[in-house]
Design a protein around this nucleic acid. Structure first.
Lengths: 199, 199
DNA sequence: GGAATGACAGGTATTGAAATCTGTCAGCTG
DNA sequence: CAGCTGACAGATTTCAATACCTGTCATTCC
């Protein structure tokens, strides 16, 4: 279709894959479609990705990693007190997921399917990344004497699981309901009170 | 098949429906199957339930209500301090759901599908029942001076949502993983610390 | 006469043949 | 000669014909 003369890179294939997925959905998007969108034969796609599953994993990872960067900035941001850092990180995670779901519903629905396919690998690593960031926040908060926690990783895991409803795509349709903001605030308040240092 | 001479009641139809659902699964269980299992014509089933959807809702409600009773006992149990009551109620909810998933996986998978069909009605009421029970526990705890909460219903909602992972069927496959007990305890500890009265 | 039946119309699932897709590879091309 | 192509085998998906199911109701049965 668009027979570009640029060299065929993994990134160009992934961008085309995402576009095909957005147009056709996860069930009907084929490797042949991706190749056609790039103006190459599907054999060329297989030079860069061993299988269709590997291509789907890569495009899913690419999508998930877009979120991770924003959040990392909050982990590293200087001058935030520990409670604010936790609150802002959780709020940013919720906001990022919700923005994705709202701005491009078709693509979000598509990736919601893809993430169930790759739950064990790509999604597992994504969750490990996120809980790792949260562990760092909890650990520094504990070191600063603001939080009382036995083990930062365990507590970070509990925080992440407690807020599942506000970042797991499974609950996406509830993110637009009136009152979610308040529900989110009430939950985060409760969790932060649980983190606070005790004498 | 079993041409019982007993009169045809809604309860007998629901029991037969559950059995048919267990055997055939949610996709292939038909009203004709239910009638055949009871030794009657399918027209007779329609005398008790207006539509197949109504039959499915009723059997789902029956299944969900089996859990509610056990938990109500904990709400009403005398001599429990507020923290213990919250902890035991949440633990009993988790245990009940997990037992259902473990004891009869086929039936659990079937009801997991049915609950997505009836999310707005039957499941909504079930969740309202449960958060109502939890609100009662939080309210009495606050009145006893053990908890500091602005609004018991809001806090109960936060507690319920925070523990989604341990009662939402969506996460059922994680309930058998090693370490879930510890994850559950860590989360409940954090939540209860958040509830505690502050000076 | 109140409950149950079974034929029926309209709609939804099943089935199997045909079309398409995945993944490979020998050969082409720049 | 590194990258790309397109024909191919086996697996999966699509599609249309058929079978079955849902919901109704005039009729039958105790």
């Amino acid at each position: 279709m668009a027979p570009t003369s640029e060299t065929l890179t993994a990134e160009r294939i992934l961008a085309a894959t995402e576009e095909v997925l957005r147009r056709h959905g996860p069930a009907k998007a084929t490797v042949v479609d991706v190749a056609r969108a790039l103006g190459v034969s599907h054999g060329s796609v297989y030079r860069h990705f061993r299988t269709k599953a590997a291509l789907r994993e890569a495009v899913t990872k690419r999508w998930l990693d877009r979120t991770t960067g924003v959040l990392a900035a909050i982990v590293a941001a200087p001058g935030l007190d520990p409670e604010t850092r936790v609150r802002e990180w959780l709020a940013a995670l919720f906001a990022a997921k919700r923005r994705k779901a709202f701005d491009d519903p078709e693509l979000f629905a598509t990736y919601s399917v893809l993430t169930t396919e790759t739950a064990e690998t790509v999604v597992g690593e994504h969750i490990a990344d996120l809980t790792g960031q949260l562990t760092e926040i909890v650990r520094t908060g504990a070191e600063a004497g603001a939080f009382t926690v036995e083990d930062p990783a365990t507590t970070a895991g509990a925080l992440f699981r407690a807020t599942d409803r506000f970042h797991d795509p499974h609950y996406a349709r509830e993110w637009e309901l009136p009152g979610v903001e308040g529900e989110f605030e009430a939950l985060v308040d409760l969790l932060i009170r649980g983190l606070r240092a005790r004498d």
